[in-house]
């Protein structure tokens, strides 16, 4: 039973990371109908920047905050500079531009920082925390906490601020939004900025576990796809919940189902995608697309 609770909490911690990245994907998808295949690499790049700042002697949380700011501006700039010229192009064209972005970020990171894995610090103590009779990894609990704080702040931002409201409006109905005086293009850019920020948090929280290297987000992005698919690409809350579910399932299956172990974990994620897609094509919490003739 103790092991079970431990595994669930640890699953929630990684699941929160998948969920964050899934949320970043969904935010951009809802606003622009584009799956940002470069989301993972953007997160990876931000994490390298954090590593540079920490190595330069900044205290962890200062570096953390600075990275979030840089990631936000970077995401915003990428939308304005790279994505904007193809805004009205066919979706596949935008997909290819995202793939271009992916290989650029990956390659530049490898060039600047090399492909050798680097350890990345965790801001939380190494000693496990004991609650009752059960020991929890401090980083697991901390990462889960940080993720929840970020998600909660986003929720408050979108729900209660005028800018958040304008962003939701711009994503839903760009024409009407313009008629309300909303600068839709900038709303999309801010959306990219926020998505990059959320991704940066995910990167910094997962790096102490998987180590820092240019390909570290590849696998995690796939889990994020699985999470977003599970929750439905049209539901931000669903994407986060999807992430938590995928994280927990992954951990429990890895612990209790012997023949799967760690090597086939990825296959589990894929199986989740396929089963959900075939049973419920719009995801658990998604809306089915409405078709017009």
């Amino acid at each position: 039973m103790d092991i079970f609770v431990q595994q669930v909490v640890s699953g929630l911690a990684t699941g929160g990371i998948y969920g964050s990245l899934a949320l970043a994907l969904v935010m951009i998808y809802q606003a622009t109908d584009v799956v940002n295949y470069a989301q993972g690499e953007m997160a990876m790049f931000s994490t390298y920047l954090a590593w540079t700042l920490i190595n330069a002697g900044l205290p962890y949380w200062v570096a953390f905050a600075a990275t979030l700011a840089i990631a936000f501006v970077g995401g915003l700039a990428i939308e304005r500079v790279v994505i904007r010229p193809v805004e009205n192009a066919p979706v596949l064209t935008i997909v290819i531009v995202c793939i271009g972005l992916l290989v650029i970020l990956n390659s530049v990171a490898g060039w600047v920082y090399s492909y050798i894995q680097k350890p990345f610090p965790s801001p939380f103590p190494e000693k496990p925390i004991r609650i009752g009779n059960v020991f929890f990894g401090a980083h697991d609990l901390g990462a889960l906490g940080v993720t929840l704080v970020v998600l909660l702040s986003l929720y408050v931002f979108f729900r209660y601020t005028t800018l958040g409201l304008a962003m939701r409006a711009a994503a839903q109905n760009p024409v009407s939004s313009r008629l309300c005086g909303i600068r839709v293009g900038w709303m999309l850019a801010v959306g990219w900025g926020l998505a990059a920020l959320v991704g940066a948090v995910a990167g910094m929280m997962v790096a102490p576990v998987v180590f820092l290297d240019p390909n570290m987000m590849g696998g995690i992005l796939i889990y994020a796809f699985a999470s977003a698919t599970l929750g439905g690409f049209t539901s931000p809350g669903g994407a986060v919940l999807g992430g938590l579910i995928v994280g927990v399932i992954e951990n429990l299956v890895g612990t209790y189902v012997r023949f799967i172990g760690t090597e086939l974990k990825l296959t589990v994620a894929l199986a989740v995608i396929l089963v959900v897609l075939i049973v419920k094509p719009s995801g658990l919490f998604g809306r089915a697309a409405v078709h017009r003739v």
Binding site: T162, L165, A166, A169, Q172, C180, I182
Partner: peptide, 26 residues
């Protein structure tokens, strides 16, 4: 200049109050 467009341009998934707040955005 406020435009009430063809098809009304309602933000269907937002609440009535949010729709109105958007009207005052600019």
């Amino acid at each position: 200049i406020a435009h009430v467009p063809e098809g009304r341009g309602t933000f269907m998934q937002l609440t009535v109050e949010e729709n109105l707040r958007l009207g005052a955005y600019a």
